[in-house]
Amino acid sequence: MSNELIKLLDRADAMPAAALLRARTYDLLRLKPGETVVDVGCGAGLAVAELTGRSVTAVGVDVSEEMIDAARQRRPEGDFRIGDACHLPLGDHEVAGYRADKVFHELADPARALAEALRVLAPGGRIVLIGQDWDTIVIDSDQPGLTRTIVHARADLTTNPRAARAYRTLLLDAGFRDVEVEAHVGVFTGETMLAMLTGLAQAAHAAGAITREECDTWTSAQARRAEKDRLFLALPLFVASATRQPIS
């Protein structure tokens, strides 16, 4: 993972719409002051800092040592731990809230991660999942056929590209109750997300789905769109929330 990726995430997180969506996930946790929440896949620790600002105790967990190092450097007062979604460095029923942002599409076994969420959540605790559907990214282009190929080829490189659309089923099957799902669409224009579009095309080329010429032509066209303020990218995002059943 490079510093460039962290910078890209920083730019995306700074967008007003992204900040509003994060705040919505915090609200859905329904935490009381003093309660503890774990942010799984915490990255550089932004959500941990924002949750702490809401007078709760936030623990950030990430599988990437580089991300945890970045979080600790930026926010030395924070509690950041290395761990993955299926092996959280937490005790049984230790937290009142569990949040995972853009994590489950990276998991080969989401059900196992939800079993771990049940282990660390106290009875009545809340879980909130947020993620994008990699198979339905919308990009304006004069080459719609090539664009579809790029989007689907990139989705096929993702461990679980359609995990977000399965949130409701996954949570119900895991035994959570009061499951609700919201659909949001992140709309991006200008140059901010050009690096993401370039990455999609390069990944499709590396996978053999498109030629080098097609990759270069498509990315050049998107760069020209960005320069003229004509770039359009829409990301379908799903937010699922649920409550842990009382222990029987």
Rank of each mutant, 00 (worst) to 15 (best):
Asn3Met: 06
Ala71Thr: 05
Leu233Phe: 13
Thr211His: 12
Phe80His: 06
Ala117Thr: 07
Cys42Val: 00
Arg244Ala: 14
Lys102Trp: 08
Ala122His: 04
Leu237Phe: 14
Met15Phe: 10
Met1Leu: 08
Ala226Asp: 09
Asp109Gln: 14
Leu129Asn: 04
Ala183Asn: 13
Arg177Ser: 14
Ile130Cys: 11
Val61Trp: 02
Asp178Trp: 02
Gly124Tyr: 04
Gly131Trp: 03
Thr169Val: 08
Ile127Phe: 01
Gly45Met: 10
Phe232Glu: 01
Phe80Pro: 02
Arg224Thr: 08
Ser64Asn: 06
Leu28His: 01
Asp178Arg: 11
Ala96Cys: 00
Thr25Glu: 01
Val239His: 03
Ala174Phe: 05
Met196Ala: 10
Tyr26Met: 04
Asp109Cys: 10
Asp156Lys: 12
Asp178Tyr: 02
Arg230His: 11
Asp229Phe: 12
Val187Glu: 10
Leu172Tyr: 11
Ala195Lys: 02
Gln202Lys: 10
His184Thr: 01
Asp229Trp: 12
Thr211Phe: 10
Gly124Ile: 04
Val40Ile: 14
Gly190Glu: 10
Pro144Lys: 06
Ala206Cys: 05
Ala122Lys: 15
Val48Gln: 00
Val48Leu: 05
Ala234Asn: 01
Trp134Cys: 05
Phe238Thr: 03
Phe188Tyr: 15
Arg126Ala: 07
Ala206Tyr: 02
Met196Trp: 12
Asp140Asn: 11
Ile247Thr: 12
Glu227Thr: 12
Gln245Asn: 09
Arg99Asp: 01
Gly97Thr: 03
Glu180Trp: 00
Ile130Tyr: 00
Ala221Leu: 11
Thr189Glu: 12
Lys7Ala: 14
Gly131Gln: 04
Gly131Cys: 05
Leu21Tyr: 01
Gly190Asn: 07
Ala164Asn: 03
Arg244Asn: 09
Glu116Leu: 11
Val179Leu: 09
Ala163Asp: 10
Ala44Pro: 04
Asp142Leu: 10
Asp27Gln: 13
Ala234Val: 03
Ser248Thr: 14
Thr169Trp: 13
Lys32Glu: 07
Glu94Pro: 05
Val61Gln: 06
Gly91Met: 07
Phe176Ile: 07
Pro89Ser: 05
Asp13Gln: 14
Thr243Asp: 09
Asp69Glu: 12
